[in-house]
């Protein structure tokens, strides 16, 4: 299978502080990788680095996406190439409706592919279909982006946006945090339905429970900016039972 993402010896800093200290990771089309690890390990920094957040500086190493160097690309270029970040803390944009937000995004993606703006009918059909995936009711499209949304609604909105943009690689940063059991089921099954042989997903999570819905091919444990252990789906269960100490102590 084709390598989609190849990270080699990645070092990255937030300000002066080095957070990622030599990450190697290879992801192929069709795979789901979970990244776990204690607080402060660098999980969210890794996600933000892949999405091109400008307060993070790559100080060493390489990130290649479908063979191309990702590091110099702007966040929007990465999105056009097929990278999607599901935010841990989705941003509220009062005054901008979900429908207008997504229309702007979908149309920019189309423009990059040399296509004209999406037709009203087609856009409505897309919205309806993807809203159903995360069980959003029809009022959702005219509400302002995440403004006044509950924690669960915000995370469902991330999965909805992912479905609308149909990325090749989705990086979901704690899409399961702060969710009740119903919202967790909706988010989990939603993401799982989007799984295809030609796309890939990185799940950043603290908990085994999301992985009951989306069974990963690999689980990586991140600690102090490095991947210190890689296993299969059973590793999550072991971490759930035993914590991280046994891994850290063995280093």
């Amino acid at each position: 299978m084709n390598t989609m993402l190849k990270i080699e010896n990645l070092h990255a800093a937030v300000g002066e502080k080095e957070i990622l200290r030599g990450i190697d990771l290879e992801i192929k089309a069709g795979e789901v990788h979970a990244i776990m690890g204690p607080n402060g390990a660098g999980k969210s920094t890794l996600a933000a680095t892949l999405a091109g957040r400008d307060n993070i500086t790559v100080t060493d190493g390489t990130i290649r996406f479908e063979g191309e160097d990702l590091v110099p690309m702007s966040p929007e270029e990465r999105s056009w190439k097929g990278i999607f970040l599901g935010f841990q803390y989705p941003v509220e944009i009062p005054g901008l409706t979900n429908a207008n937000f997504m229309k702007a995004a979908v149309n920019e993606h189309r423009k990059q592919r040399g296509l004209g703006p999406v037709s009203a009918v087609e856009f409505l059909r897309m919205m309806k279909e993807k809203m159903a995936l995360v069980e959003m009711d029809s009022s959702f499209s005219s509400r302002a982006v995440n403004a006044g949304f509950s924690g669960g609604e915000k995370k469902r909105n991330e999965v909805f946006q992912m479905a609308m943009l149909d990325p090749k690689l989705a990086i979901l940063d704690e899409s399961d945090s702060g969710l009740d059991v119903d919202a967790l089921r909706i988010v989990g099954t939603g993401v799982d339905k989007l799984r295809r042989p030609d796309n890939a997903t990185i799940l950043i999570t603290h908990y085994q429970r999301l992985l009951d819905y989306i069974v990963p091919d690999y689980i990586h444990v991140l600690y102090k900016g490095r991947i210190v252990m890689t296993g299969d789906k059973d590793l999550a269960r072991e971490i759930e039972e035993r914590g991280y100490d046994w891994i850290i102590n063995a280093l």
Binding site: S74, L85, V91
Partner: peptide
């Protein structure tokens, strides 16, 4: 607001837009 700009850009909306 940089947060909002980054959020929009991560969805493929150009910085200018």
């Amino acid at each position: 607001r940089d947060e909002e700009l980054f959020y929009m850009r991560s969805r493929g909306i150009s910085l200018e837009e």
